[in-house]
Design a protein around this nucleic acid. Structure first.
Lengths: 356, 356
DNA sequence: GCTTGACCTGGAATGCATTCCAGGGGTTAG
DNA sequence: CTAACCCCTGGAATGCATTCCAGGTCAAGC
């Protein structure tokens, strides 16, 4: 069953059927109703591959993620929910951080299987990715080395600053700090915050109070081990994520110490983890879903400006993309914006959430 | 840049270009190399929409999920990983349990945007879903009322049985039980297990030891409240999920009781939650990712038998779908299999995992 | 009465790749 | 020497819907 058959059965041309299908004006009421009736009777629905081929748009955005875990899920969820309001769906592409897998994902854009690409994490050099910008919008959530690819992300400096000031307000003065990947920009920013904030308040920021390469709950336990064995024991810890914080808490409590009384722990995580509530953890909420939404908005803006998109948000309850807690950096096109070697700092709003 | 242009530039016909592209035999070495060179030079890559339109296959499977949370993520992950081995990608369609959204997802199948559909949860009547089977394979992970739609799921009876027997082996004899949705089949099976297993062992299964409609960690805390207030206090609790179990544990411990010494709690969850490790919970692992994999296998088998698929698993490290811990129920087609009113019980393997 | 324009409709080109069919050239077997 | 067959190649039909262009009808305005 295709549009030709429908036209035949209804005794009109395919143009007319197409006009009915797409709610174009200039179709007589009689023709319209005849066509609609035949469509109803024959249970016809247009083949989307043909439509997509013709209009050159699929209303699908590809999401490139190294793996499907809690963290990336937040981003995906934010983007998927926002996209849904505009009639977009998401195609998940897992890369396991393998460059070849990433190339496959980039090919999807060139080959028009997706309209745009959201890269949550990449192993491919930025330059290679930028080469695909000519096929469609791409956005990432990693601070990029050059300004070619648009990026949306939050500055972990702010997150750490908030958490640290919370601890300081509560009277803590020997604050330790636990981060993950030593080399990552986010870790660097967190350490910057650790050193600067404490220094500004006249508090010590000792090197031996910094624990690196701590990722999991088990790592957190080990970090607690080492931390509690220090000659001068800290009275608080700022961590880079809730799982780690939970590990610390568990270890601390199992040793008969009380948290937060003896040792306060602050996490840094998106709302939905649920762990904070369970273990009674105070954390700085990291609005990953807002980042995801903003990423979609960035792509959408590009799609619209390239005439890719009619620009009609559908549905009733889609929020306006106005004020959000995350800002996007506009990478500009590879030709027009050569200035920024590194991406600028970003404004955003986080908050400390105490679980009582 | 399209195949026609390539043909022109290479001085051959489009047929020849197509043959080169698809590695068909019967292309002279000279023609092949010329075409490849032009493809290289012009940076050409075939438009997938055209290919998909022509061959009637997209190598995308749609996953219909009510929301993106930890639970469904496990299933999605299992399916996506398995699918990747066969060159399939997944398109996520969130429904928020709204029938209209589900209809949209079903339409994707009819309109050939996806080759097959995985329904993780539905609000639409089975009969309506079965009506779409003629457009492509559909699989669900919910026990279905009639045998029309193939389903892959595990029997929660077994999960509960394992957990209960674990508790009994540890000498517990006053075992309570916490479940979620009262009406769901899974809850029913769990309660069946609770009553039958305890009865078989000559232990009491009291009505007042059954707590229903408990879903979240907070609910778990409240359940603990009520449970600890009972005149005859149980010495163990079997729960339907880890989050709830964690809530119970937290409440119990905050009241100064020791778990598992004073009150043992067993969860029921997929491996990856991570919560079990953090709070020191023993649970029955629920291999959701295996269910996801099996769901994909079920779809894939159908695709293959309908000639949809060439049947060549790609890549080196794809596991053989041979022995798995979950079994599929073959729903048969709506015409050929009218016998089973309800789905039969399923075999599978779970295990108890103690966190020490 | 004629022009202008709105409204409706159909035809054909278009987007792009796949595949069947037919045909030419060369080789081998009978 | 011819029939049979293989290899290579191109043409054209095909999958299906969109859209531009042109043509026709009818009513309103000058």
């Amino acid at each position: 069953m295709n549009i030709r058959k429908i036209a035949e059965l209804a005794g009109v041309s395919v143009s007319t059927v197409s006009r009915v299908l797409n709610r174009h004006p200039h179709v007589s009421e009689s023709a319209r109703s005849r066509v609609l009736q035949i469509i109803e009777e024959t249970d016809y629905s247009p083949n989307l591959n043909a439509v997509q081929l013709k209009v050159g748009r699929t209303r699908v955005i590809g999401i490139v993620t190294p793996t499907l875990n809690h963290y990336y899920l937040q981003l995906i969820k934010g983007a998927a929910n926002r996209g849904k309001g505009y009639g977009y769906q998401v195609l998940i592409h897992q890369t396991e951080e393998q460059p070849e897998q990433e190339m496959q994902a980039l090919e999807l854009l060139r080959r028009k299987k997706v309209d745009a690409l959201m890269i949550l994490r990449r192993a491919t050099p930025w330059a290679d990715i930028a080469g695909y910008l000519k096929y469609g919008p791409i956005v990432t959530c990693e601070p990029m080395q050059n300004g070619h690819v648009p990026a949306v992300f939050l500055d972990h400096y702010e997150g750490f600053r908030l958490g640290l000031e919370h601890l300081i307000r509560r009277g803590r003065c020997k604050i330790a700090c636990v981060v993950g990947r030593g080399g990552s920009r986010n870790s660097k920013r967190r350490l910057d915050a650790y050193r600067e904030v404490l220094e500004n308040r006249g508090l010590p920021a000792r090197e031996e109070w910094i624990f690196r390469d701590v990722y999991t709950a088990a790592d957190g336990r080990r970090a607690a081990d080492r931390l509690l064995a220090l000659p001068e024991r800290p009275d608080a810890v700022m961590t880079a994520n809730d799982l780690v914080a939970a590990g610390l808490l568990a270890e601390i409590r199992e040793r008969g110490l009380r948290a937060p009384e003896d040792l306060a722990v602050v996490g840094f995580e998106s709302d939905e983890s649920g762990i904070a509530d369970i273990v009674g953890l105070t954390n700085v909420t990291n609005p990953l879903d807002a980042v995801g939404r903003k990423m979609f908005d960035t792509l959408y803006a590009r799609l619209k400006e390239s005439g890719h998109e009619a620009g009609k948000p559908s549905g009733g309850k889609s929020k306006t993309p106005a004020a959000d807690s995350v800002k996007a950096v506009d990478g500009g096109s590879a030709e027009t914006d050569e200035k920024s070697g590194a991406s600028p700092a970003l404004h955003f709003e986080l908050r400390v959430r105490s679980s009582t």
